[in-house]
Nucleic acid binder design. Structure first.
Length: 957
RNA sequence: GCGAGCGUAGCUCAGCGGCAGAGCAUCGCCUUCACACGGCGAGGGUCGCAGGUUCAAUCCCUGCCGCUCGCACCA
């Protein structure tokens, strides 16, 4: 909190000036200012046309519900997209990330309905409904609601750092997109791909609307299986004898929905079922109602189930509907749209479905026609939106004839014009597309795109048009009434990749950005959205809507459970952003974005990456302390002149002077190349977790843990060593910030601004259209691997140095020696190279390990000496224990090490003792194992002699 | 039933043919001059089970077992 006060003059920081970084990473103090700066400077803008040689990169956002609030799923998808977008922008592509929101038909409408219900009572004393207001008033209210709430989700996207081109923000019901919707509807209708018809559809009695197959979610329920007896009779009603028993025949049929028997119009058996062969062509008597219905045969019937008989209710079951069509059965509607039994249900008319079930069962029990009741696990379809049981009913609706649209969409994926990642989802896609059914697109709602179809009051014909027609296209009548229904929300989202770019106008944006580059979304909407965009894109643009589909995993809570309000396990991204900053959250999501697995998010992880941001913050602060003589701390060169930026930039200077560089400087530059390669590869292959890991281990494990420590010595030494080290440090940190920027844009921008020698940006985006230059890390050139900085020798040298330092630290740790305890170390080189090397690193080792001296010795070890044998470099370190450590502790350490060496040795020997290994494994490998064996043996003997000496000493104590 | 994915350290996950890795958690030592949102060290895994291929298998193949998610469905 104190931090924000300290940074109150934040806008000043935007200017180039000597910076004073705060004590630690406090994201609340700068994130929002930085976003505003980017946004106001036009950093997110795309250009309508590419400059020559430039590529375009485009992603359309999966539009969140306009009245929604940001949840972890949004945070994940938008973090991933923003990373890709920022990366491409830095690479110099003309980059467009299209923002926008979805009107979300049912969801939004029901929120407004709830609000209205709270406001008062209707004429009959019940809460107000939309019908009390009327369509026009209700829509006004909903638009108002939309205006009031739309900014919430977009503001939250901004808090995340999303670099969306807000000038291109769209809404599925804005004027342009609505025109696109009408255009598509009319054209599909003209093509015969949209029709209106009476079909069996899913109906939600609560939402009072038709639903598509996808909007009904099957759920396992514990239910019952009721066995009902249907008597078998002749056409004239006389009883039929069962030849097997000689008694009056009847058929026992199992059902999970007894109330549907009111609508039964047949009983079916399998044609080859011997048991019922005698019943073919006879009739069954419907229990309770006494209606006589035919017994039909169909291979659909499962002979194994129950007694092999099936009741057929064509009006209220999808399979029965098909069966009914095949056998030309009458259709009896008994379940009404209002959730109540219709007049056709006789005595049960007017009852709710659930009441009717109880009443029917009671009556069956009384009449003796209920033979048996069993427990049964069955599935019911729930309305995706309200969780109420949705019922199949027959109703007149608009449909998209989907097969002709599906074919090119299947081909697009088969031929590789669109690639799924992970690829395994393609199978899921094909599975659904090959068995696709016509899409019911009409919804009995008010909030949405009203269907552009008008019915003539005089000739009853339908006129479909782009704008309200004056007269009927069939009879010329002027009495027209528009269809009251609206379209499925997904109908407009299906057009999103081209409607947002201005279609049906032939815009420059379409030319530049369609097909879009990547679609990033959740696998849960492959059918709802992805497949439909492909179909519409292929049909209307003649081209795929995107080249790659990147599907991320589901974000769950730390226990792996789905986050939901009712469970109370929702982690709010905004809370995390406020507490820890957007960057740590983004880094967490990127690090966990490995594919094919659920993401179990834990707050611990976010805290860990906050620490990471703080670590990088302090690394940059370290640089400032070195650069600024005023803040020179103890140990720095006193009165060192401020260093000027090297001519031609740090990079060129380092290339020119590469041969003169200290091993540590050459080493970190070499490691930087490796990191650039790994980060780049991760972004390219959608393995953001690889990139994140590479950034983390390079920044913390190499730059902070080792390089900065190495650097302290030459920085203190002053002169040319100090100069080259400062230049290296500055260069490496700037490159690191640049590499990190797509993942953690805020903290990197804040830190980058503070650098005194910022490189000039050189992406085309920066200077395009004669815009003033904007100084931001966003437009820095993306780092490229430069093989001239690769330096195996330096890497080997630092590896050796680290080996020595780590061995000494381990010795210290195992013996619980305080860092303040200093002691002398000597070494015995196994060869002249090792001796040479040890001499070269002696200074570094002394400074990093806090030892008094590191000198070569020859001859046998003295009686107080313990040894630490090292393979790389090939030396034996010797330390006199006199007055230093507890001998028993050291004995323990030596024994432990011997055990380890012994284990390794026997492992190697087991390998080498197999003739097959010697003869078949690669020669180099065999040679390496032989070397290992020798090295292990040598180590062992050194340790053994040390142990002997120690036990003599130990005996004395 | 069909399809997909997953079972690796206490937890979350990476690795996917040559002696098991990270972060967090745990235990020691340290407030040392960028950082205690820190440093150093240590402990901890027959890589779900059983076969097979291979000189060599956590990694490839087959079969089980367990968990998760799609799709279809027994009315």
């Amino acid at each position: 909190m104190g931090q924000s006060k300290q940074r109150s003059g934040q806008s000043e920081v935007l200017k180039r000036e000597a910076s004073a970084l705060g004590k630690s990473y406090e994201p609340a103090g700068f994130e929002q200012d930085i976003y505003r700066f980017w946004s106001e400077s036009g950093c997110f803008d795309s250009a309508e046309e590419n400059v020559p040689g430039q590529e375009s990169f485009c992603i359309v956002i999966p539009p969140p519900n306009v009245t929604g609030v940001l949840h972890m799923g949004h945070a994940l998808t938008n973090t991933i997209q923003d990373i890709l977008v920022r990366w491409h922008r830095m690479k110099g592509d003309n980059t467009l990330w299209v923002p926008g929101t979805d009107h979300a038909g049912i969801a939004t409408q029901s929120q407004v309905e709830k609000q209205i219900a709270k406001e008062g009572k209707g004429p009959t004393g019940r809460p107000l409904t939309r019908h009390d207001l009327g369509r026009e008033k209700f829509l006004e209210r909903t638009w108002q609601w939309k205006e009031e709430h739309a900014h919430i989700i977009t503001d939250q996207l901004k808090r995340l750092g999303s670099s969306l081109d807000w000038k291109r923000e769209r809404f599925t019901m804005d004027e342009g997109l609505s025109a696109a919707v009408r255009e598509v509807f009319v054209r599909l209708h003209e093509d015969g791909l949209i029709y209106r018809g009476e079909r069996i559809i899913n109906w939600c009695p609560r939402c009072q609307t038709a639903l598509s197959d996808l909007e009904v979610v099957p759920q396992d329920r514990k239910g019952h299986l009721w066995h009902l007896r249907y008597r078998i009779v002749e056409a004239d009603g006389s009883a039929v004898k069962n030849p097997a028993t000689g008694e009056d025949a009847s058929l026992v049929i199992a059902t999970t929905r007894p109330e549907t028997l009111l609508g039964d119009t047949a009983v079916a058996v399998h044609p080859e079922d011997e048991r019922w062969a005698f019943a073919h062509g006879k009739f069954a008597v419907l229990p309770l109602l006494g209606r006589k219905i035919p017994i039909i045969t169909d291979t659909y019937v499962d002979r194994e189930f129950g007694t092999g008989g099936l009741k057929v209710t064509p009006a209220h079951d999808f399979n029965d509907y098909e069966l009914g069509k095949r056998h030309d059965l009458p259709v009896v509607h008994v379940m009404g749209k209002d959730g109540k039994i219709t007049a056709a249900g006789g005595p049960y008319a007017g009852m709710k479905f659930s009441e009717a079930r109880e009443a029917v069962l009671q009556a069956l029990k009384e009449s003796g026609e209920l033979v048996k009741t069993e427990d049964h696990q069955n599935k019911v379809g729930l309305c995706q939106r309200c969780d109420q049981v949705a019922e199949p009913i027959i109703s007149k609706q608009w449909f998209v004839k989907i097969e002709p649209l599906a074919k090119p969409a299947i081909a697009a994926v088969e031929t590789g014009k669109i690639e799924f990642s992970p690829k395994s989802w393609e199978k899921t896609y094909f599975e659904w597309m090959y068995n696709i059914r016509d899409w019911c697109i009409s919804r009995q709602l008010w909030w949405g795109h009203q269907i552009p179809a008008w019915y003539c009051q005089s000739c009853q014909e339908t006129t479909v048009a782009r704008s309200t027609p004056e007269k009927c296209s069939h009879c010329g009548g002027a009495q027209l009434k528009q269809d009251e229904d609206v379209l499925d929300t997904w109908f407009s989202s299906a057009l999103w990749p081209f409607s947002t770019l201005g279609w049906p106008e032939k815009t420059k944006a379409l030319q530049t950005f369609y097909p879009t580059s990547i679609l990033e979304t959740g696998f849960d909407i492959i059918f709802f959205w992805v497949a439909r965009m492909i179909m519409m894109g292929m049909h209307f643009m003649g081209e795929v809507p995107f080249r790659k589909i990147y599907l991320h995993a589901m974000v769950r809570d730390e226990k792996g459970e789905k986050m939901s309000k009712s469970k109370g396990n929702v982690i709010d991204p905004l809370v995390l952003i406020n507490q820890h900053g957007a960057d740590p959250l983004r880094f967490t999501l990127a690090a966990m974005a490995g594919q094919g697995r659920d993401i179990k998010l834990s707050v611990d992880r976010v805290e860990g990456y906050r620490a990471f941001c703080n670590k990088v913050w302090n690394a940059v602060k370290f640089l400032h302390l070195q650069l600024d003589p005023q803040s020179a701390v103890d140990g720095l060169v006193p009165n060192a002149a401020p260093l000027a930026e090297p001519q031609g930039g740090a990079r060129q200077w380092l290339l020119d002077n590469h041969a003169k560089l200290l091993p540590a400087n050459a080493w970190i530059l070499s490691r930087l190349q490796e990191s650039i390669a790994t980060v780049e590869k991760g972004f390219k292959n959608f393995e953001l977790n690889e990139s994140a890991q590479a950034l983390y281990s390079f920044a913390w494990g190499e730059v902070c843990d080792w390089y900065i420590e190495f650097a302290k010595l030459p920085l203190r030494a002053g002169g040319a060593d100090r100069e080259q080290t400062l230049i290296t440090l500055h260069y490496v940190l700037e490159q690191l910030l640049t590499l990190m920027h797509p993942v953690t844009p805020f903290v990197t921008e804040e830190l980058w601004r503070s650098l005194p020698w910022r490189s000039p940006a050189n992406t085309p985006a920066r200077t395009r259209d004669g815009k003033p230059e904007i100084e931001t890390l966003m437009f820095q050139a993306w780092p490229k691997v430069d093989s001239r900085f690769r330096d195996e020798k330096a890497e080997a040298a630092v590896g050796g140095l680290r080996g020595v330092v780590e061995a000494l630290r381990s010795f210290r740790g195992e013996n619980s020696l305080s860092p303040r305890t200093e002691f002398a170390v000597s070494y015995v080189p196994q060869n002249s190279q090792a001796g040479e090397f040890m001499r070269s690193i002696a200074g570094d080792v002394r400074s990093l390990s806090r030892i008094t001296s590191l000198e070569p010795v020859t001859g046998a070890a003295g009686e107080f000496e313990t040894v630490i044998p090292l393979a790389v470099p090939a030396v034996e370190l010797r330390i006199s224990l006199q007055g230093l450590v507890n001998v028993e502790e050291e004995q323990k350490r030596v024994r432990k090490e011997m055990e380890k060496v012994q284990a390794d040795l026997s492992h190697v020997r087991a390998k080498l003792s197999r003739e097959s290994f010697i003869s078949k494994a690669p020669v180099e490998l065999v040679a390496k194992e032989r070397e290992n064996e020798a090295a292990h043996l040598a180590k062992l003997s050194e340790l053994e002699s040390a142990l002997t000496r120690l036990s003599r000493l130990g005996g004395g104590k």
